[in-house]
């Protein structure tokens, strides 16, 4: 008799505890959601850039998610690259050294990117040609819409490159 009572009490206590845990879970979910980036931040997730404004030999920097994206229009005297370029003469790479994350500088006379931190060098295609960088400069997700490139969205061209492992 007494034991039965205890177990019944326990069952209710456990049920209460479980139900309270559901509530705590709900509250934690709400708290979790409050830490998500604000709409104005999310609006920066994609950036549209008109690549036709870049003159041959010129390099422009787009700000995408707080990171620099180099948009270079190559001239014939620069390194050519069939595989890392969709629109023939353009190189679009994330301007962050794959070694330790510094921002490489374009050296116009040598036509290479040179990283000030540890001397890593990349050619006009973004391929690592000297120093510690383990791989070429990353290609950001992009989608081509006429003359515009939309950074942050994965278009069919980007997906193809990604499949071939050319984006990183």
């Amino acid at each position: 008799m007494a034991e039965e009572k205890v177990s019944r009490r326990d069952f209710l206590l456990y049920a209460m505890g479980a139900w309270a845990a559901v509530g705590v879970g709900g509250v934690l979910y709400g708290m979790y959601k409050t830490w998500e980036p604000l709409p104005e931040v999310k609006a920066q997730a994609t950036v549209t850039f008109d690549i036709s404004t870049v003159q041959p030999g010129e390099i422009k920097v787009a700000n995408w998610r707080g990171k620099p994206v180099f948009i270079l229009r190559r001239t014939p005297d620069m390194t050519q690259c069939k595989d890392r370029s969709i629109k023939d003469e353009y190189t679009v790479v994330l301007g962050i050294c794959t070694h330790l994350g510094c921002i490489p500088n374009w050296e116009a006379d040598k036509k290479i990117w040179h990283c000030p931190c540890h001397g890593g060098e990349y050619d006009a295609c973004g391929k690592n040609i000297f120093g510690p960088p383990p791989r070429p400069l990353d290609v950001p997700p992009f989608k081509i819409e006429g003359n515009n490139i939309v950074l942050g969205e994965e278009g069919p061209e980007y997906k193809q490159m990604k499949e071939k492992g050319l984006t990183a």
Binding site: G30, K33, T34, E36, L38, P39, E40
Partner: peptide, 13 residues
Amino acid sequence: KTIMMDVEYGWLF
């Protein structure tokens, strides 16, 4: 704006 409109569940808090 930020708390009442932009933050998810900000209005609730």
